[in-house]
Nucleic acid binder design. Sequence first.
DNA 1: TTTCTCTTACTGACGAGTAAGTAATGTGTG
DNA 2: CACACATTACTTACTCGTCAGTAAGAGAAA
Lengths: 234, 234
Amino acid sequence: MTDATPARSADAAPTRTPRPRRTRPATLERREEILRAAMRVFGSKGYHQGSLAEVAEQVGITHAGVLHHFGSKDRLLTEVLEFRDRVDVEHLEGQHIPGGLDLFRHLVKTAAINAERPGIVQAYTVLTGEAVTDGHPASAWVTERFTGLRADIAGALREVIEERRAAGDTDTDYELTDAALDLAASTIIGAMDGLQIQWLLDPEAVDLAESTAFAIEAILASTLAGARRPRPLD
Amino acid sequence: MTDATPARSADAAPTRTPRPRRTRPATLERREEILRAAMRVFGSKGYHQGSLAEVAEQVGITHAGVLHHFGSKDRLLTEVLEFRDRVDVEHLEGQHIPGGLDLFRHLVKTAAINAERPGIVQAYTVLTGEAVTDGHPASAWVTERFTGLRADIAGALREVIEERRAAGDTDTDYELTDAALDLAASTIIGAMDGLQIQWLLDPEAVDLAESTAFAIEAILASTLAGARRPRPLD
DNA sequence: TTTCTCTTACTGACGAGTAAGTAATGTGTG
DNA sequence: CACACATTACTTACTCGTCAGTAAGAGAAA
């Protein structure tokens, strides 16, 4: 039984360099094109309903060409998600990631910008919704994304409250638990996501920017008011 | 060009009655079984990813049997949605649909109940998320559902405010526009839906009942406080 | 001449819908 | 009441389409 694979290390001439070539710049661009196309397709049709053929067509190749670059549909999806993360971060490059009240202003501004690009919002919403199905390849990513967002927002909340305390605001001297901050953070994220769904389905009926701003202000006010705020349901 | 279809009305013996037989009770039960199975399947896998074969298997027949009853997968989905509507209404039978503050208490209680039945929540969330994809058969249903919910909640809000005015609460004598009520209504619905997503993905991280209650109280308080509430972002 | 990019061509699987047939369950007629 | 025959509730066995993934090779680049 002879080895069918060519002998590599054993007696290859030492003159032979291992020859790494790797990615040309044109190829990297190609891959980004594919990622962008995939984002459009998965965003409008969902992951399961979107096909590799459709992604391929948008960049003028065949579906096998896409598989050459990404190996499988699952891997394509995860690379799309990582790519989005990278792009989002680059977008903030130069500017620091805002904290404190600025984070909330940033969220409101983002909603206003998103109201002009339904495609992005749809992509995010579809993938997030799909991720709660059993065994979906994006569910880990979405879950971690939520975890990160909650931490960021809870942190910003803490900053705001501590700032006010430092300024001698006696309205804020209640117990400040992590749980309460997380609660507010989840609620803000939830409201933003839920409003996006309604807006996508019926843009006439919901003003994305305005309702997002309202939600954040309401939750912020309630959180800052702490335990002493009258609870309307009691 | 002769008519290939047998002459029906022209000279058929008047003795022939059209013979309607229709559905036996056992059949109706069978169809309900199928609808319940379909809800489970579409709820856990989504509409596109869930197959007729899987639905059929759960009631012990073949996928062709399902098609015999419902004609097509699309029709099955719409009948599932109509069935859910019917069941939900029956569930409230006897009790009046609550209005005013009771509606909000009802929403909070529903969230607490839902925290014990992730299947239902998942079904609702998956279908809603999928509905924002292009040309999805459930999008009309979901859109109308949101429209109805917004109207109900906005109406309840109006009731609450008018009650307080009647009681002489001067805190509520600001302009009361429909737009403001709809805004609050969308936000409450959005928060509930968004929190469900996070809870499904990470039940440890989010307390569905508590966060929903918090969201509703915060938005309610903000709305009742009207225009005079300090706006933290300004 | 090796490596990379991509195509053509194929496989295997799965899924919705159709067609034809079968067994059971009624229903109208004599 | 009995018989004939509609109608129902399915099954089996397809068709047709789609889609992910594979294999082999061609042309270009390095």
